[in-house]
Amino acid sequence: MNDNPPPYQTDPRVDDYINALPEWQQDICRQVRDLIHAADPEIAETIKRTVRPYFVLQGNVCALLAAKDHVNVFLYDGAIVPDPEGIITAGHDNKTARTVAFREGETINAPALLAMFRQIIANNRAGGWRKLKNRPE
C-alpha cells in the first residue's frame, strides 16, 4: 500500500470503496483515479447510486465499478468522444456511457484513456454531450 497521499482532493468514501477490493482491482482503480485527476485538477470525487465512485466536473465524467473478474470504467460521453485506439470494450451503441473494462494483469492504455477523459471534460465545459450531440452541423 502506498503511504504517500495523492496530490489531489479525495473523497473518503471513494477510498473506502477502493480499499475493500482485491489488490489487483485496487491497483487498476488507483491508476484510473490518478489519470482522471491528471486530466483536470478541478475533477471532484463523489459517490452516486449508493456505493459507486463517480468523477465529476460540470457533469459526470466517469464512474468505477469493480466486478468479479474486471473493473469497469464507465465513460459518460454520449458515444461522441473518439476512440482511435479502440479501448472501448462495451456500450458502443449506448446513448449515455461506454465502458472500458480492465482485467487482472492488463495494462491500462494511459495516453488513450487520458485523452478521452480530457475530451469528456471539454465537452462538459461546452454544455455537455447531450447539447453537443443535438447541435446542428
Rank of each mutant, 00 (worst) to 15 (best):
G78C: 01
H70K: 10
A97M: 13
Q9A: 15
F55C: 03
E42C: 07
P22W: 09
D15Y: 11
N72V: 09
P22E: 14
W24T: 00
A79S: 15
V51I: 14
T96C: 06
T107V: 07
G105W: 00
T107F: 00
Q25L: 00
P136Y: 07
F74Y: 15
E85P: 07
G86N: 12
L64S: 02
K48I: 06
R103Y: 00
D15S: 11
N134R: 15
A110Y: 07
V81R: 08
D3T: 15
I120A: 03
Q26Y: 07
A44P: 04
G91R: 01
V32I: 12
I108W: 03
G78V: 01
P41Y: 03
D40Q: 05
K95F: 10
L132I: 10
D11F: 10
L75R: 00
D83F: 02
K68G: 09
I18T: 00
I18H: 02
F102S: 06
V56I: 14
A39R: 02
I28F: 01
C62I: 05
E23G: 01
Y54E: 07
C29V: 04
I47D: 01
K68E: 13
V81S: 08
P111A: 05
N124W: 01
K133P: 05
P82T: 13
T99M: 06
L21M: 09
P12Y: 06
D69T: 13
A101T: 02
A97G: 10
T96E: 08
I47L: 02
